[in-house]
Design a protein around this nucleic acid. Structure first.
Lengths: 338, 338
DNA sequence: TTGAAAGCGCTAACAC
DNA sequence: GTGTTAGCGCTTTCAA
C-alpha cells in the first residue's frame, strides 16, 4: 500500500506537505506542489479513508435513511437516491444506505461510531417516530417530508397545497365544471404524510374558489381492487368533468378504465396526474402532470445538509419546493393549445 | 466521546482487554468480561469505526454497484438493495452505494482508499466493461448477472433457460398448442444480458420439445408504443394460444390489451409473466408467474461475498438460481386445478 | 488469562 | 512556505 509517507519521500518533502497539498488548507509553492503531485501520480497514491477520518474527525460519509413500506412508490425512490449520491460525490462524500430494519438503534450506531457525519431521511411522516432520536443524536440532519413538529431539524418537501391547486386549476381552465380527486385508500392513515393532506386541501380549496364541485373519492383498498371498486363513480365523473390522480399507478389504472368505458381521455374528459415528467410521457397517453420534482428536491436536501455540515446557520430551516404543471394530451381544449 | 480507554479505566483492565472482549478473539474470564460489559453499558460506549478500520485493515463496508439505465426496472432494484443491506448488517457490515456516474474511477477510489472491502455489482451484462477494473482491483467481488467472461469473478444469476422453459411448459400443460413470447424491443441489444438470451432460448426449446410453434415477438420500441404496435399479433395469438411476458410492465400492458379486445385472460387465453410474486398477485388479475427470486438471489450473492471475504475458496465460482412458477388465474384449465 | 506498547496512515497544531 | 511532532481510537503482537 502506498502511503503519504512514500509520496513525501519521493517528492522530497514532509508528510504534512503532502497532506496540505491535498487539502489546500495552506499555501504551497507551485514547484513543491508539482513535485508532490508528480510523486502521487507516479506511485498511484490513494489516501486512506479510515486514517483520514480518524485524524480529521470526519467520515466523509452521509447516511441516507430509506424506510420501505407497502406504501412506498418503489420506482420513485431510485432516481432520488441516485441524485443524492451524485450530489454527495460532488462534495467528496459517499453515501451509506440505512434501511428500516435496525430502527433507531441503527441511526444511533451510525452516528456514535462515526460511520456517518450526517443524515438524510426520506419519506418523513407528520409524526415520524425517528425524529426524537435524530434530534438527540445532534448530527446535521435533513428530512424529506414535513413533520408536524420538526424538533429543530431541517426539512424539505414538495408544496402539496400548490400541487393540488395546480391540478384543479388546469381542469377548470380547460372548461370542466366538476372535479373528482382520487384520494388515499380508506382505512389507511393517508394524513400520515403532510404532503397528501395538503394536496387534498389545495385541490378542494381551488375548486371552491372556482365555484366548482369537488368529490374526493377514496378507494376502499390499495391496488387494482380499490380502483375497480370505485370504477362507476370515476367513469360517471369523467363523463361530466375532470379527474385528478395523485400517483402514477392510479393514473395508469384510471386511464385504462376510461379507455375501456369508451372514453378518450384526450377528447371526452380530462386527467391530471401527480408524477414525474418522464413517467407522464410514457403512460399510454402523454398525461398532463404535476411534477414530483424528486431530483430538485433531492438536490435541495443535499445542499441544506452540506450547509449544516459546514456549520452555516444562515439558512431557512424549512423549504417547500414548488411543483410544475405540464400540459399534455389529457387536458384537451386548453385555450393555449386549441 | 467515550473511548475504549475510558471503558478500560472504569473496568480496571487494559485497553486491549476491552478490544478482546469485543472481538472475541481470545478467551476472557467471565468476571472480567462482565466488568467490561458493564462499563461499556454504563458509559454508552460505541467503538469508533475509523479507528477500528485503520487498525484492523477492514472497513466493514461493502460497495453495492447500481448502474441505473433506461432499461432498469426501477421497482425491482429496491427490494434487492434492501435485502443486500439487511444481509450485510447481519455480518456487521454497512453498504455504500455506488452509482454509475463515476465509472471505473469510482470503483478504484473506493477500493484503493479502503472505503469498501468488497463489491457487489448489480445488473451485469454479458460483456460488462466494468469487469476488467474489478478483476484488477483484486477485492472480493460478486456479480449479479452472468458475464461471458467472468475473469475469475464470482457471479450469481437466475437460470434464464429454466425460466423460459417453465413458462412455456405451463402454457402447454393447460392445453395451448401455440405460444407467443414477447421479447426485447428490436434495435436494443437484448442479448446484452445473458439471462434474457437464455430465457428466449429456453422458451423456444421447450416449445420445440412439445411440438408446439413459438413466435418471438419483438416490439419495435420500448414502452406502451412498442406494445401497441404489435397489438394485433398479440390479440390474434391470444385467441389461438398462450402468451409469455418477460417483465411486469409488459404483462400489465398485455393484460390490458386482452381485456380491451374482449378476451378474458382467466378463461379465453393464457398468460405467464416473469415477475416477483407480489407483483403478480397485484396485477389486475392474479397472473401466473415465474418468479424473479430477487431476494434469494441477493442473499446468495451476499453469502458468496462473505465467504470470499473470509478467505474461503471452497465454493463454486458461479451459481444459477432456479426460478419457481406459481399458478394463478391466467393459466386456466390446468389439470391440477380443474 | 491479562497487560504493555507499537503501530495503522493521516491531520493539524506549533514551530521556524 | 515548509518541517516536526503529537495525536485520532483502535488492533495485535510480544511478554508475562
Amino acid at each position: 500500500m502506498v502511503t503519504s509517507k512514500d509520496v513525501a519521500a519521493l517528492a522530497g518533502v514532509s508528510q504534512s506537505t503532502v497532506s496540505y497539498v491535498m487539502s489546500g488548507s495552506r499555501s504551497i509553492s507551485p514547484a513543491t506542489r508539482a513535485r508532490v503531485e508528480a510523486a502521487m501520480e507516479q506511485l498511484g497514491y490513494h489516501p486512506n479513508a479510515s486514517a483520514r477520518a480518524l485524524a480529521g474527525q470526519r467520515a466523509h460519509v452521509l447516511g441516507l435513511v430509506v424506510h420501505v413500506t407497502a406504501r412506498t412508490e418503489l420506482a420513485g425512490v431510485l432516481p432520488f437516491v441516485e441524485t443524492v449520491t451524485g450530489a454527495a460525490r460532488e462534495r467528496e462524500y459517499d453515501v451509506v444506505l440505512v434501511t428500516g430494519d435496525e430502527g433507531d438503534a441503527g441511526l444511533e450506531r451510525l452516528a456514535r461510531r462515526g460511520i456517518v457525519d450526517a443524515f438524510l431521511v426520506m419519506d418523513v411522516t407528520r409524526r415520524d417516530p425517528r425524529l426524537g432520536t435524530l434530534a438527540r443524536l445532534g448530527r446535521p440532519t435533513v428530512l424529506i417530508g414535513r413533520p408536524d413538529e420538526p424538533l429543530g431539524l431541517h426539512w424539505v418537501d414538495l408544496d402539496g397545497r400548490r400541487a393540488g391547486e395546480l391540478a384543479v386549476q388546469e381542469l377548470v381552465a380547460v372548461g370542466h365544471r366538476e372535479v373528482i380527486v382520487l384520494g388515499e385508500p380508506v382505512g389507511e392513515p393517508g394524513e400520515e404524510h403532510r404532503f397528501i393532506a395538503d394536496f387534498e386541501d389545495g385541490a378542494r380549496q381551488a375548486a371552491e374558489r372556482a365555484g366548482v364541485p369537488v368529490a374526493l373519492v377514496r378507494p376502499p383498498e390499495r391496488g387494482w381492487a380499490g380502483v375497480l371498486a370505485v370504477r362507476d363513480r370515476l367513469v360517471e365523473g369523467a363523463r361530466r368533468g375532470g379527474l385528478v390522480a395523485r400517483t402514477p399507478q392510479v393514473a395508469e389504472r384510471v386511464l385504462q378504465l376510461l379507455l375501456e368505458a369508451g372514453l378518450d381521455p384526450a377528447r371526452d374528459t380530462a386527467l391530471v396526474a401527480m408524477c414525474e415528467d418522464d413517467v407522464a410521457r410514457r403512460l399510454r397517453l402523454p398525461v398532463t402532470n404535476v411534477s414530483t420534482e424528486s431530483r430538485p428536491l433531492a438536490r435541495r436536501a443535499v445542499d441544506a445538509l452540506f450547509a449544516r455540515l459546514q456549520g452555516r446557520t444562515d439558512l431557512p430551516d424549512e423549504q417547500l419546493v414548488t411543483p410544475v404543471l405540464t400540459r399534455r394530451t389529457t387536458t384537451p381544449g386548453h385555450p393555449d393549445r386549441p
